[in-house]
Design a protein around this nucleic acid. Structure first.
Lengths: 144, 144
DNA sequence: GCTGATGGTTATAGTTACTATAAGGTCAAG
DNA sequence: CTTGACCTTATAGTAACTATAACCATCAGC
């Protein structure tokens, strides 16, 4: 099976620009080209892209993935380091989960204390500027 | 009480560069200056900065915060829209929580299935490239 | 008074993982 | 033969900072 970028994009639920971006970042090798210069992909590249997308969905950075891919390319090597990366990522995810749970709790608390008055008496605004309490969550999270 | 950027930074657990950045983005008004051009802040600005930091820690974007601040500046206005923003943010947080929980689950599963062999047989790598299953989590999350 | 450490100032560029835009070339269908 | 969908490249923009450079101010100790 052969794919142009667009076809590959659809087959992997990715955008064409993103595929080209991955190529520019060295995650996908330079694809073959037609006479007109169109990229041509095979199932092999599709699988590699799926690997990337799936890893991204699990929160790995492109840098992580570069590492995972280089490991995966050496089938005879030990998979201990791959496992270590997964465990590491799991830890990161758990930290972020704890942060988010704290945020959820506090937002719930905030939301519950609004009684529909005017801002001068709004406890939300009050709470947000209150210097009595230290922030309950770690640091500013990465924005979406 | 008067603060220079550095003092304010310490008092609010922020970096000086970040404070200047907030000023450049219109979240903090231009501070007064000493003869030498040093920024000088008072408790009022410190509170405003705490509001910003606290809101950031709860996941609001700087844009959200600009909105919250402009509301907070009109004490006689209704606080309904502030409440709406909090509820909105709560929803976002819950979505991200669900995503992260799915990631946690899958990473646990992956981690459990590594038996310390070589990569050729590693089920982690296999799972990550597996095209049988659709990703279980929404989209690529924001990196850290 | 001098010197060095510390801390202030600006402007510019880099980060991550894309996304958007522009300006143009290719291809299949009607 | 033209229309429209698709491909190509290069460049700039996004969020929320962070890092760097090059320079000026303040203060403690000698």
């Amino acid at each position: 099976m052969h794919y142009t970028v667009g076809k590959l994009a659809k087959a992997t639920d990715t955008k064409a620009v993103t595929i080209r971006y991955y190529e520019s970042q060295g995650l996908l090798l330079s694809a073959e080209r037609t006479a007109a210069g169109y990229r041509l992909y095979t199932d092999k590249e599709r699988d590699r892209l799926l690997f990337i997308r799936r890893s991204r969905a699990l929160g790995f950075t492109l840098d992580d993935i570069r590492g995972l891919l280089s490991h995966a390319d050496h089938r005879e090597a030990s998979c201990a380091s791959v496992d270590a990366k997964v465990k590491d990522q799991l830890e990161q995810v758990r930290l972020r989960l704890a942060d988010l749970r704290a945020m959820e709790l506090e937002l719930e608390r905030l939301s519950a204390c609004c009684e529909g008055g005017v801002i001068g008496e709004c406890r939300i605004v009050e709470s947000l500027s209150g210097r009595s309490q230290k922030p309950t969550v770690a640091g500013p999270p990465p924005g979406p």
